[in-house]
Amino acid sequence: MTKDEIYQKVAGTLVEALNVDEDEIKKEAKLQGDLGAESIDFLDIVFRLEREFGIKIPRGELFPESIFQGDPDLVQDGMITEKGLKELHERMPYAELGDFDKNPELSHLGDIFTVDLISRYIDYKLNQTTKA
């Protein structure tokens, strides 16, 4: 599957899950900030992506809840710790976290979850499946 095909399918999945118009879906659109996703929608997105792409998404792999939940090892005073950032990078090798690393406020973590990030994740997963 090409990256564009993945993006189109991800876009269609998000239109259904978040009940938004197709023209609201852009690569850089933030799931929470721009598309109005709430926490329960993340679970819905995981279910739909699994169904749409025929993959298994282990708990916490796409949306790392240990960091969202503010595990004290990973988050202190509202900032993600060095250990937390290391974990984010390890868990999300497909993500571009450049800007976030400079000011890793937990309250901004949601902003890294864009339509593009979901597409990159799926591409990464499908490649893993092919390699396996």
């Binding site: 926490s39 329960i40 679970l43 819905d44 279910f47 708990r59 809840e65 969202f68 939940q69």
Partner: peptide, 10 residues
């Protein structure tokens, strides 16, 4: 769709 509260942030 159901959420399982013990296994979510909730």
């Amino acid at each position: 769709q159901f959420a399982h509260l013990d296994n979510t942030r909730a």
